[in-house]
């Protein structure tokens, strides 16, 4: 990979981490979705940069499918199926406050880096930084899933974890046989569709989409 592609990819990765953290702390649900779109575009950008030289059809296709599926189709599905009031809401019920989230994200970023070191030492990948940043993205997505109590940000948390996984994937498995493209093109929109249906049912039944407040099922000790 040429030097300027390498630096451009590093810039994309830096922005990727910023979007991951922003999704955890952003209170407005609509804005959280916009940041997710941005993150998916960054994932696609990284795929294009890594697939540029040497040229790789797989990565090019993966980037295109990511844009079509995650930046266009999924936001459209979630917007059109989940009631609009939900997106205007500000979520004040996060389990821990913003500074604690930022500190935790920082710790997870370091953990992602630490996890990437032995992997990069063991085998050659297209871009070692992708491995570390993707791992961190996966862990920060997990944090988002844990602290957000609203339905849409929780789903975006899962999708952000997946973005992290595929950010690693494009660097370590650039010739993965079509499966990744298939998964992103069909599985992920299906996921968004089914979860949006479920969210709508939750909204109709409880009058809100605060899934964190659903705690009726547990063991009565």
């Amino acid at each position: 990979m040429s030097a300027w592609l390498y630096h451009l990819n590093a810039l994309v990765l830096g922005l990727f981490i910023l979007t991951a953290i922003a999704m955890v702390v952003m209170r407005q649900i609509g804005a959280c979705m916009q940041v997710f779109v941005l993150q998916s575009l960054l994932l696609a950008a990284s795929a294009f940069l890594l697939g540029g030289a040497p040229w790789s059809w797989h990565l090019f296709a993966l980037g295109c499918v990511t844009i079509a599926s995650k930046a266009v189709l999924i936001p459209w599905i979630l917007r059109s199926m989940v009631p609009a009031q939900v997106y205007a809401r500000r979520e004040f019920s996060q389990s821990i406050d913003v500074s604690a989230i930022l500190l935790s994200s920082l710790a997870l970023l370091l953990a992602g880096y630490a996890a990437g070191i032995p992997l990069n030492a063991a085998a050659h990948s297209l871009s070692p930084a992708n491995v570390s940043v993707g791992m961190a993205g996966l862990l920060i997505g997990l944090l988002q899933l844990a602290v957000r109590r609203e339905a849409v940000p929780q789903i975006l948390g899962i999708l952000a974890m997946e973005n992290g996984a595929f950010l690693v994937g494009i660097a370590i498995a650039p010739n993965f046989p079509l499966i990744a493209e298939l998964a992103i093109a069909f599985d992920v929109p299906l996921l968004a569709f089914i979860v949006a249906l479920l969210t709508r049912s939750v909204y109709q039944e409880t009058g809100s989409t605060e899934v964190g407040s659903l705690t009726a099922l547990r063991e009565l000790l």
């Binding site: 996966l138 899933l145 899962i158 974890m161 992290g164 996984a165 479920l198 939750v202 099922l217």
Partner: peptide, 22 residues
Amino acid sequence: EALEAAWKYMVLTLLGATVAVL
């Protein structure tokens, strides 16, 4: 209750699937 169960099921198993894909 069924919606709550479905939500928990969805979140934890999809989280698992995402970890598994990596």
